[in-house]
Nucleic acid binder design. Structure first.
Length: 104
DNA sequence: CTCTTGACAGAGT
DNA sequence: AACTCTGCCAAGA
């Protein structure tokens, strides 16, 4: 799998996350690990930073439910609008966590 | 090729 | 609970 294909795979998966739900960068990397052969939360983060426009990037947060630096306002607003379970300024991953298996 | 840099994660303080 | 330190792995300089 080429790097470009990996980027596509990440974006495709992120698009499949339903409104009001969320995934951590690590969870995304993990879900793609089977198919891509590698799992790196950092890599997913970088990809979202560079190619994240165009997909519901706000539904991808870090493992602690923290929103991406610099986009916290935007993300919080969108998540709130979608009814995503929030705990202060963090996503309640325990309640919002989604996996590809669930959405097919 | 080496060194630094991250929308990260997990353990330690 | 907030911070720091380490491991991680691919991109850029």
């Amino acid at each position: 799998m080429t790097p470009d294909e990996y980027v596509e795979a990440v974006l495709t998966l992120v698009e499949r996350i339903p409104p009001g739900r969320a995934m951590s960068y690590g969870a995304v990397a993990d879900a793609l690990a089977e198919r891509s052969g590698r799992a790196s939360a950092r890599l997913v983060g970088s990809i979202m930073a560079r190619h994240g426009g165009g997909v519901p990037w706000h539904r991808v947060v870090n493992a602690a439910g923290r929103l991406p630096p610099g986009h916290e306002r935007e993300a919080r607003a969108r998540l709130r609008a979608e009814g995503c379970p929030l705990r202060g300024d963090r996503v309640d991953l325990a309640a919002a966590a989604w996996s590809p298996e669930e959405g097919m």
